[in-house]
Amino acid sequence: MSYAYLFKYIIIGDTGVGKSCLLLQFTDKRFQPVHDLTIGVEFGARMISIDGKQIKLQIWDTAGQESFRSITRSYYRGAAGALLVYDITRRDTFNHLTTWLEDARQHSNSNMVIMLIGNKSDLEARRDVKKEEGEAFAREHGLIFMETSAKTAANVEEAFINTAKEIYQKIQDGVFDINNEANGIKIGPQHSPTNPNMPSGGGSAGQSGGCC
């Protein structure tokens, strides 16, 4: 389908936190309890609508394994948004966030919108990282924060769409140069007329992440 913009996303985080499951839930709306280890990078794409504009999200789902780090780093380049995912049941994934964030900031453009996601929120009983900790980290590093569940699909849509909204807002504010593809934004093959029937979704949820 035709789209106005194409946003490149990357999903990063420790292996096994549920990155590929989040992607599958977002693109196929299904959950796969057993998932193959991602080799290098996998791709997903979905069309969303923001402010009546069709936007194609092209998501690069990177391998979380440490051995792929050197390869996957090169894929950060030119991403407009990043989902930095940790597992709320595993504190080590939360502890590695700083490394991931540094990596992401280093290998992508500084305007990249980063959404911090505490995944597996359905496993409340096994929670190891409090929500407040995630919020505090996000606030500290200027990220948007959300707890999601790829299994129950809770907040999965919102996580992707709110990131897109933030990017879109940055485009409107002129922060992103649309014509520079290094920013991870491509203009669609045809600037199709906006579809006025499409509601723009959850209003100003883009700012609800609680960052500064």
Binding site: V41, A45, W60, S74, R77
Partner: peptide, 16 residues
């Protein structure tokens, strides 16, 4: 079918 993205990623890899 993600052929284009794979090609892009492959290009990135190749350049690297």
């Amino acid at each position: 079918f993600q052929g284009l993205v794979h090609l892009e990623a492959l290009e990135i890899l190749s350049q690297q």
